[in-house]
């Protein structure tokens, strides 16, 4: 008797829960309508391509399509690992990202502290507006400006070098200049914009701290060191960890624009290789395998970075 009663009780509670959820779904029907377009977008533009990753393990033939092509296992991965350019590609990608991080990380922080300590409010605002502008210049235009300004025959930079008695340098076509040009232009474009986060962190500093420090006879420099810097460190740590998550990423859209016949030795990174071999030579399966290889590494790096930042901050980033 008791057991039967319990059973019925359980079933009714299960049914009750279901009807409760059902009622909530009906009550919130407009929410599902509002989010539907975004969900459909993500399914088509993000999840369908993930399904298409299977061609990394197949020999893709256009007539047979993604699903109909024959499975070949890890063949394409093996080809890549033993490819002549494998080491060079990995090395170039990593080096470019590491050097990039070395400069892109600290400069916005220094810039934010500098701006925060300007005495005139209006000049500070003006400067902030001005240093964000390069961020709105397109990558194509950035590359175009560099091709023009760094031209060995009539670029302004080489005119200056010649005037100082040096030999013109073919910046855009020499392997040893690729990384410098790439990184300096990235800093030019992004330093101001990236400083926003740190400026926001500094805006959160309680003004009483500065006043107390001033009364205690602290110089400005000491206030920067002992008030500003500690306030920036949490944001900075988080940004640093996150950037480490992108170390195998290729900023292919930018690198492709900077790649010329002469600088391949340093500018040939995984992203550009996938583009050239995949879309240029039609080796879809081989390059999908390379893409998957990189994506898995990136996934591990980002998840790792995110969990480290969670442990440090006690909250998730996303």
């Amino acid at each position: 008797m008791v057991s039967v009663g319990l059973k019925v009780g359980k079933r009714t509670s299960y049914v009750a829960r279901l009807t409760k959820v059902g009622r909530q779904v009906v009550a919130n029907r407009w929410l599902y309508v509002l989010i539907a377009p975004a969900v459909i977008y993500l399914i088509v533009f993000n999840y369908f391509p993930m399904y298409g990753i299977q061609i990394a393990f197949k020999d893709y033939k256009a007539v047979r399509g993604i699903e109909g092509s024959a499975w070949v296992g890890l063949k394409h991965f093996r080809t890549f690992f033993s490819a002549y350019y494998f080491g060079r590609l990995i090395g170039n990608t990593l080096l470019l990202n590491v050097y990039n991080l070395l400069f892109q990380f600290p400069i916005p922080i220094i810039l934010a502290v500098m701006l925060n300590n300007l005495r005139s409010r209006s000049f500070k605002k003006l400067t902030q507006t001005a240093v964000y502008i390069p961020h709105f210049v397109s990558t194509v235009v950035l590359a175009g400006m560099l091709y023009i300004l760094l031209s060995p025959s009539n670029g302004i930079v080489n005119h200056l070098i010649s005037a100082l008695g040096g030999q013109p340098i073919y910046f855009m076509n020499e392997a040893r200049w690729f990384r410098s040009v790439y990184i300096i232009s990235s800093v030019w474009q992004n330093a101001g914009w990236s400083s926003i986060l740190y400026i926001a962190a500094l805006a959160g500093v309680d003004p009483e701290l500065y006043e107390a420090a001033t009364i205690d006879g602290a110089t400005l420099w000491q206030r920067v060191l002992h008030i500003d810097v500690p306030h920036i460190i949490p944001t900075a740590t988080m940004m640093l960890i996150l950037s480490c998550g992108g170390l195998m990423n290729s900023a292919i859209q930018k690198a492709l624009l900077f790649q010329t016949g002469g600088n391949m030795a340093t500018s040939d990174i995984i992203g550009t290789y996938v583009y050239t071999m995949g879309l240029g030579n039609g080796q879809f399966s081989y390059t999908s395998a390379i893409g998957l290889f990189v994506n898995v590494i990136n996934f591990a790096l980002i998840v790792g970075a995110n969990s480290i930042s969670n442990k440090m901050k006690g909250e998730t980033l996303f």
Binding site: V21, Q24, V25, N28, L31, Y32, I35, A38, V39, L42, V44, F45, N46, Y47, F48, P49, M50, Y51, G52, I53, I55, A56, Y60, I66, I252, G271, V274, Y275, G278, L279, F284, T287, S288, G291, L292, V294, N295, N298, F299, I302, V303, F318
Partner: peptide, 30 residues
């Protein structure tokens, strides 16, 4: 920003795309 049944599933669907993607070639073919 609201609470509704299935929110966690949909959130996961969104956030996962920030970590992982199909890559250039599978996206192109799709």
């Amino acid at each position: 920003s609201r609470k509704f049944p299935g929110k966690r599933l949909i959130s996961t669907l969104f956030v996962f795309t920030m970590f992982f993607g199909g890559g250039l070639i599978p996206t192109f073919l799709t």
